[in-house]
Design a protein around this nucleic acid. Structure first.
Lengths: 291, 291
DNA sequence: AATTTTTTCTGACTTTAGTCAGGTAAATTC
DNA sequence: GAATTTACCTGACTAAAGTCAGAAAAAATT
């Protein structure tokens, strides 16, 4: 009925109206919105003044004045950076932390109000993850993390849940072994996590034994992250790390019903080979020579 | 990983950042945001000054000054309303229409950019519809429309598509008859359409023959609108209209696989009765006495 | 060691947004 | 038909946001 573009604009209006109402309630704390934004950004960990300026897109003069204002209110302290005395770093004082938490609880209760009024929360949250990830696709961050990081546990559990439901079997994660962790962290291997504004949306592990042969394990993308080219980005980074670790050949196994994964491997230089392990869930085996 | 509330706030940030960028590009047209908002609202059909004030939540003094500004730019004219000379009505001049279209094309290209960069547009749009509808649930409008209105055709087609996929059969809409329209519009019956910010999200027809017996037809809710209590709202309004049309008994038929619909009828005073027609797709028949 | 660049700050602005107390004319109510 | 209400306007404000030129100090470059 409405064309696609109108449907997108309808979403923008709905969210903008929502945050307009939140801004109004922020004003109830008696501080102009500019100062509130700076205080919130500091509370969320943007402590470097130059980061703050970039994040909030504020003129340096204006930024400086807002910081002076918050200092005068006793909410923050601003000190010079030890490494580079030109740069300055802001910190919340205890009073600042209080004020920050007031803003947080306003934001949280506004969010809660929307969420609790809808029955099927899971699909609502999935829809929000999808949109936020698509809108923030230019800000997806990929970074190495420890294979025992709780965010990896979250990703891997999601991965197992999906495999279980796609393959229609009861998949026992512990059977395939957690004691692998040592092979998935430096100096032998690596584990990459992709996040979008804090939400883990994908991961990929590289298992090594200190030899020239590596194995790619646990490539997973959240449903919100599909169709963004993130799979290829993760694999490319894994290959870069593999080269740095001195590997020349990578292998992986997968199941035939994971169509997207199969396509990704076939289109990116992976060659199908014979079975090289006894993983009962694996049906396809691939190898790639690193050049 | 992130809790539900953080996931909602992540969506807000993503959309707000997006519209912040749009606001910045609006400023490129050399007009302050306040004036731009007024011009856009007028372009979108909010021509009454009092409507404008309410919609944009602006003080009457500020509103007046912004209108004077746009008038001075030659973008709008403001005249008194014929029916009530206190009220004033704004209209775009040709130059105003040009300026409005510039803003529109900025908005549209921003929206298009996001949409075209994602592969699975249908699920993205469905996610946007869901969220916009949930956020805008307090602004859902229900109004009588002609049964041959194109928006009703859209709803009814969606309805048939769903029935087809749920029942796993090829359902022929024309078999059940378009010539019903006369029985679905005043003075015999009525057709209600529910919209959320312009998007049709539900409908319900009341078919009458000029007697005390009426039949409820084509109750449909878009997937975005489920879980909001809209089904009950539509049925309540249909019953009100039925009473005004002098009906005392309502009937309807439905299929057993439409679980949500069955639940709605059973919880709202409908009593299951014997088959009263030969509709091959119907399995359950209900009746309700209006008091 | 001199020059350039980077980072932040201050002062002196302008623009935009928003508030509030009347005032006028038309419509509504009593 | 007098009193009240409504819709909009004007003038006189204040507050907030944003701009710009220049200055000072530290770091980086030459």
């Amino acid at each position: 009925m409405l064309d696609n573009i109108s449907r997108f604009r309808r979403l923008s209006r709905a969210v903008t109206t929502q945050s307009g109402a939140l801004d109004t309630s922020f004003l109830g704390l008696g501080r102009p919105l500019g100062s509130a934004r700076v205080l919130n950004a500091i509370g969320h960990g943007k402590t470097d003044v130059s980061d703050l300026r970039e994040y909030l897109e504020l003129d340096s003069g204006l930024m400086s004045r807002l910081l002076r204002g918050l200092e005068a209110e006793g909410l923050i302290t601003v000190e010079s950076d030890g490494n580079d005395a030109r740069r300055r770093v802001a910190q919340l004082t205890p009073a600042g932390r209080d004020a920050f938490h007031q803003y947080e609880s306003l934001s949280n209760s506004a969010a809660e109000k929307v969420l609790t009024r809808y029955k099927d929360q899971d699909s609502l949250l999935a829809a929000m993850d999808l949109i936020a990830t698509v809108l923030g696709r230019d800000h997806i961050e990929i970074a190495p993390v420890d294979p025992e990081d709780p965010r990896i546990a979250y990703c891997v559990n999601q991965f197992y849940d999906e495999i279980t439901s796609i393959l229609g079997i009861t998949f026992d994660p512990h059977a395939s072994g957690n004691p692998e962790a040592d092979y998935l962290r430096p100096p032998k291997g690596i584990f990459l996590l992709a996040t979008s504004d804090g939400l883990p949306i994908g991961c990929c592990g590289l298992k090594g034994q200190g030899t020239q042969l590596g194995e790619v394990k646990r490539l997973w993308l959240s449903s919100a992250a599909r169709g963004l080219g993130l799979g290829k980005r993760l694999m490319d980074e894994i290959e870069d790390h593999a080269r740095k670790l001195g590997m020349t050949t990578l292998q992986l196994d997968t199941n035939g019903r994971l169509h997207a994964a199969l396509g990704l491997y076939r289109n990116n230089g992976w060659i199908e080979i014979d079975r090289y392990n006894d993983n009962p869930y694996a049906e396809h085996f691939f190898e790639k020579q690193l050049t």
